[in-house]
């Protein structure tokens, strides 16, 4: 394994992680809800009674984040190399997979691990493992 020290950004990664943790803590302490993005989106699609308002408000906050950022600084790079067919296939997999597995990086990864949930640990190992394996296949076996 070779570490890309030039690309390594430990300070911003930790700081961003702390912000994500603070946001999850706020939603838990004030609203009594889990900041799981796929659960929030899926809940909007399922239209669970009485849960739509806060979910829309949270998603609106996520959407407006970049605009707020732009008031003070230029946006950090968002580099999307995948082409459109891959994006569509990946999007479908992420949508179906996160709903079938009841969570994603935020719900299982951040909140579930913070709750010390064995169920979320298994889910996190599954999607991390599949993510590592997929990139290995795409980049090193298929050479894309």
């Amino acid at each position: 394994m070779t570490i890309d020290w030039n690309a390594f950004t430990p300070i911003s990664a930790l700081a961003g992680g702390v912000l994500i943790g603070v946001a999850s803590a706020l939603l838990l302490a004030l609203n009594g809800r889990i900041a799981g993005i796929s659960g929030i989106l899926g809940g909007l699609i399922d239209r669970t009674a009485g849960e739509t308002g806060w979910r829309l408000a949270f998603i609106l906050g996520l959407l407006i984040g970049p605009a707020l950022w732009l008031l003070f600084a230029t946006l950090p790079a968002i580099e999307i190399r995948a082409d459109y067919p891959v994006l569509v296939a990946a999007g479908l997999l992420v949508g179906i997979g996160t709903r079938y597995g009841s969570g994603c990086t935020s719900g299982h990864g951040v909140c579930g691990l913070s709750r010390l949930s064995p169920r979320s640990l298994v889910a996190t190992l599954m999607f991390m493992g599949a993510g590592f394996a997929t990139v290995f296949v795409v980049r090193h076996l298929l050479g894309a």
């Binding site: 597995g101 999607f127 493992g129």
Partner: peptide
């Protein structure tokens, strides 16, 4: 299975 499907999509895009 859900976790694996999600991880494949995550690794693709």
């Amino acid at each position: 299975i859900g976790g694996l499907l999600f991880g494949i999509g995550w690794g693709l895009a």
